[in-house]
Design a protein around this nucleic acid. Sequence first.
RNA 1: GCGCCCGUAGCUCAAUGGAUAGAGUACUUGGCUUCGAACCAAGGGGUUGGGGGUUCGAUCCCCUCCGGGCGCACCA
Length: 571
Amino acid sequence: MIREQLRGLIQNALHSLNLEEEIVELEQTTDPLHGDYATNVALMYAKKAGLNPRELAQRITEELSRAPSSDIEKIEIAGPGFINFRLSDEYFSGALDNALKKSKKWGNNETLAGKKVIVEYADPNPFKEFHIGHLMSNTIGESIARIIEASGADTKRACYQGDVGMHVAKAVWGMIWIPNESGKPKKPSDDASLQKKISFIAESYAFGATAFEANPSVKEQIAGINKNIYSREGPQTNEIYDWGRKVSLDYFETIYKKLGTKFDFNFFESQTGEFGKKVVLENPAIFEKSDGAIVYKGDESKGLHTRVFINSEGLPTYESKELGLAKIKYDIYPYDTSIVITGNEVNDYFRVILDAMSKVFPELAKKTVHISHGMLRLPSGKMSSRTGDVITAESLIADTKERALAKISQEAFLQGEKDILAEKVALGAIKYSILKQASGKDIIFDFEQSLSFEGDSGPYLQYTYARTRSLLEKAKGRDIDVLFKRTETNALHKVILHFPEIVLRANEEREPHFIATYLIELAREFNSFYAHTIVLNDAPDEPHKLALVKAVSQTLENGLNLLGISAPERM
RNA sequence: GCGCCCGUAGCUCAAUGGAUAGAGUACUUGGCUUCGAACCAAGGGGUUGGGGGUUCGAUCCCCUCCGGGCGCACCA
């Protein structure tokens, strides 16, 4: 890669000036006035060299020009002492040619080659809704998994679902006791729609959760059900539990399919709980008894809390389940890195879990990385499934799809195609709105603002892609050639070539938004080019223009794929 | 109260310690008889929450204050 080549040249130059460089910073510039790459080494090492920055830059430049390269056209000193590299047209042609040859692999790298990585995300709870917060986790997780995959890792996707615990007990209690107007059992019949069954479970949960807080005797009953679910000692609870669990899981599958996620592993709390409890009990030196519970005493000076791992009922909590999960995952898939993606509300718990893990499974703790994302909040405030104030992923997708349908021109598509396309566009809008910003921060989710189809949006990228496809379709049979009769390397050409470095950075920082913002820049550059240039005009530079269009098309396709957004050929 | 995160244009967000802090949106205007107008072009809009410090250079690092979010023992 050109970056490494330049870095090497700078290092050599510094060496010959007897400067022991520690860091060579090399920046890909955005302003064409600053060339294509710039380094600040002269500013950094001026003091050490006993020269003023511009003098040092002069010396370095002299050293650099001793070994001319056909890739470099010009080296300039600018501003306070930056050294700017302008690359040659020859380099740009070769690089574009290379991009086209790589095709679907354009942008990929090998930084994680040979590594096994498992990525866990989404983590919805059976018996509760799959709401827009899960949608956020799924969108970010899927994109991170794809970026890691594109960096050469053997990647597995995992979903961890809370099929036991108090929330389940509340829902089960609700399903048994929820009244209906005619006094008959409210549970939908087996041939009822999945949607109907899911609504029943959600209502039951809300009913149970409210009663739990309002009525101490209900609280006791629910605690009893909770125990029965773990031990499977109640025939009535078992039956309704098994029914609800299956309905929930079937329902989630339909959502994953829609979202384009395929999990390699499903883990359940019913499984991690038992094992996690065993691990905790086997390590009495690490976990101690306190008020009838078993806790891990976090080091307060490091800001760690004391957390309950096994409650006084003898049941494992979230913490010991997570501990067990790390090992269960490893036994199935011996990972080099395990990435767990959750909302940031569990940050402090996770720090305690990792601290405990560093004592129980030190080698696994080192391999575990917790990534948290912000909350998806509504302008009205926080969602609550207890009060029924939630937006489910399905309803959001359905509403957005309606709006997309309204924009699709009537005559151009068959009815079936139209529906599929509207869903792609809707998901593109939703996913992009989540991925366009740094994932650690909360997103204030406003329908009008967030789900735009214009400007800084998913559909803008999809539209641009469809445009390139349509143009390439019309150009069938014509020559495509990066070199032929090119006048000069334009801005679009350069932006295309930034792609691999963007993917590299997104992988290093595990931040999909670098790709999202880059694709917008690329699309904008292309649309501007498109508005000012007639591509198919039989002019001598037509083959080169077509090469640019093709490269933009491929870059958008690959980039959208990394975001988990589909790229329709027409829209 | 303690800990972690955040504060950038009216709004939603970018910016690898670098050069003149950028996009979208909204608003005002212009462009479809040329390859797709979900597009393009132009315009105004900023004490980067306040104050101090480190640095050749700070939106970014440190301190402090203000404002917001999340968490702080048997829910996940």
